[in-house]
């Protein structure tokens, strides 16, 4: 017993024990079971459970709502990630000076990151509400007609994207700002002596040196955007006409509302997982190549 407290190599196991057990039981076991459950016909009442092999996968390939929700998720990702990272980068450069106003701006622009997506989605959907919202009223005054925004099948997804960018760009800003501040200032001093313009400084110094940080933001945002749920659940519930139903929204609906098909939902979740893994590994490799080119 004393050994466990006095020998570092033994005490280490005491230190990691709680974390390892929790990670094993509540993350690693579920990952494996998710794949396994995908081969079963399993509902929430755990009755009539049966092994169905690849049937769930055959079914999901023929399920139009699966294709639709994955397509919507892809649309969301293609709009959200570039907008968010570009805006985050742009703002990070804007707030990389030090003055009282800039510091105040940083604090304020970060506020949405602190807020729950649930409340944010409620507020924005009311501001855009066709009955009480100010913005639909103004679009009408401007002669754009009565925009119904979240109830308009063509506008709903772009609004969900806008809401997500609004909520998250502060996060990208902070991560990239930390990157900008760790760039050696002598590079800029040298550039200034050479008479480089701000735009040249940005494209020749800031951006190349920031590439690892930008890559990190792109990849994490990409993974995050494949899992978009909260804003859709609160603001549209996947509507109108399933135009904002994302993959996770559909998985959640399949699993946790009648007829509670846990097995089928797990199969869809497994497909989503594989797609996320392939995407992030591919992007990671692509960025690594780019970085090598910069530092070579």
């Amino acid at each position: 017993m004393r050994d466990w407290l006095n020998k570092p190599a033994k005490a280490a196991y005491l230190f990691i024990f709680p974390s390892m057990v929790i990670l094993l039981v509540f993350t690693l076991v579920p990952v494996v079971s998710s794949v396994v459950i995908g081969f079963f016909n399993l509902n929430m009442f755990f009755k009539d459970t049966s092994f169905v092999g690849l049937q769930n996968y055959a079914k999901l390939l023929a399920d139009r709502r699966v294709w639709n929700s994955f397509g919507n998720t892809l649309m969301f990702m293609l709009m959200e990630v570039p907008l968010q990272v570009t805006l985050g980068l742009f703002v990070a450069v804007l707030v990389s000076r030090a003055s009282w106003f800039v510091r105040l701006a940083r604090s304020v622009l970060f506020i949405p990151v602190v807020c729950s997506l649930t409340s944010i989605s409620i507020i924005w959907s009311l501001i855009l509400d066709p009955t009480i919202g100010i913005i639909p009223y103004y679009t009408q005054l401007l002669g754009l007609g009565k925009c119904t925004f979240l109830k308009d099948p063509n506008l709903a997804m772009p609004i969900i994207v806008f809401l997500s960018v609004w909520k998250n760009f502060g996060q990208t800003m902070v991560i990239l700002l930390a990157g900008i501040q760790s760039i050696n200032p002598t590079y800029y001093e040298a550039a200034m002596v050479e008479g480089a313009k701000p735009a040249q400084q940005f494209f020749r110094i800031t951006l190349p040196l920031l590439l690892p940080n930008v890559a990190f933001c792109v990849i994490t945002n990409l993974i995050g955007s494949m899992q978009v749920f909260d804003q859709v659940y609160v603001a549209t519930r996947g509507g109108p006409m399933f135009r904002t139903e994302t993959a996770v929204m559909y998985i959640y609906t399949r699993a946790f509302s009648a007829p509670f098909q846990l097995g089928y939902a797990s199969a869809i979740a497994t497909v989503l997982f594989v797609i996320i893994m392939i995407l992030s590994l591919t992007l990671n490799r692509w960025f690594l190549k780019r970085e090598e080119a910069v530092y070579a």
Binding site: T27, I37, Q227, F229, A255, A269, L272
Partner: peptide
């Protein structure tokens, strides 16, 4: 590992 893959199990 994203949370969604572990959600149902």
């Amino acid at each position: 590992i994203p949370f969604q893959i572990t959600m149902i199990p």
